[in-house]
């Protein structure tokens, strides 16, 4: 029994990370019909901004491969999360202005290459500043295993899960209740009509990229105490999160969240059977979903009216 509970808990913990990043993909896709393929580098960049902030706030020196655990205590960790989100959000504005807007809405796939390229640049800058070695980041809640009915989980994994759910609920409320959210949904529905209604479409799109990249930055700092911060950490997470978004439905933010959790638990459950078959099962599922429900499990099929 506790084996299954362990599988579920481990799956939900990693699924929360996928969901958070998948949500970022969904936000830019619904508002601009483009995706930020540098999302993985934003995660890694965010994690290292977090590392830098922790060291800056605490005034402690880092060894080459670890941040001392006192650096994450009290207000410092939340502050580092917010700072990383803000810096990554600013980078998101930059990527939109430089690599997406010149190509968005013009047909063709130029923005795919330009966002990928932006990611490569970001990684190279990161390597020059922080070097290639992974850095272990301490969790603000300590590292002792918590036992829930016989299953073990680390405090940081619960923190990631809680933060993911909190951020997602808050965003859901903003999107559905506030004027900004309604403006975003209007732009998602049709930029032309939204523009005629007096909505500043350009600004909404910039906001969408800032939000999406900010989420990636936040995710980076949240994952760092689990996976350690590395400039190569993001690509794996981003690919899985993109898969989650496809499974859940790219045009449905809630669907992306469900997709993230489904993927996390599925991975963990397949590990209980044959771990080396995990990727095959995950990507097999994606092909199945695309074949039978092209808009994703929770997406609405878009009908193009001619």
């Amino acid at each position: 029994m506790d084996v299954y509970l362990q599988t579920l808990l481990s799956g939900l913990a990693i699924g929360g990370v996928y969901a958070l990043i998948a949500l970022g993909f969904s936000i830019t896709f619904t508002t601009t019909k483009t995706l930020n393929f540098a999302q993985g580098e934003f995660i890694a960049f965010g994690a290292f901004i977090g590392v830098t902030m922790l060291l800056l706030f605490s005034g402690l020196a880092s060894t080459t491969t670890a941040v001392p655990s006192e650096a994450a205590s009290a207000w410092r960790y939340p502050a580092a999360v917010i700072a990383a989100g803000a810096v990554a959000g600013l980078m998101g504005v930059l990527i939109f202005l430089l690599a997406v807007r010149p190509f968005a809405g013009k047909g063709g796939m130029n923005w795919v290459m330009s966002t990928l390229g932006f990611g490569v640049m970001l990684q190279s800058i990161g390597l020059a500043v922080w070097g290639p070695a992974p850095v272990m980041v301490p969790s603000p809640l300590g590292d002792d295993v918590l036992r829930i009915a016989g299953a073990g989980v680390r405090p940081q994994e619960l923190l990631v899960l809680a933060c993911a759910i909190l951020i997602m609920v808050a965003l859901d409320l903003v999107m559905r209740r506030s004027r900004i959210g309604k403006a975003m949904m209007a732009v998602a529905h049709s930029p032309q009509i939204a523009s005629l209604m007096g909505i500043n479409v350009g600004l909404v799109m910039i906001g969408a990229f800032a939000l999406s990249s900010g989420l990636a930055g936040v995710a980076g700092v949240l994952i760092a105490p689990i996976a350690s911060a590395s400039l190569f950490m993001g690509i794996g997470f981003a690919l899985k999160a993109f898969s989650a978004a496809i499974i859940g439905g790219l045009n449905n933010p809630r669907g992306c969240i469900y997709g993230g959790f489904i993927l996390g638990v599925l991975e963990s459950a397949v590990g209980l059977w044959q771990a080396q078959w995990r990727e095959i099962v995950v990507f097999g599922l994606i092909i199945l979903v695309l074949a039978f429900r092209p808009a994703g499990l929770f997406g609405q099929a878009a009908v193009d009216k001619v």
Binding site: G152, S268, G271, L272
Partner: peptide
């Protein structure tokens, strides 16, 4: 015999199989 990915952060599934 169990395998895990180089970037995996949780190997409890594989270890539970070892244990059983």
């Amino acid at each position: 015999t169990e395998k895990f990915g180089v970037n995996d952060t949780d190997m409890t599934s594989q270890l539970n199989k070892m244990k059983s």
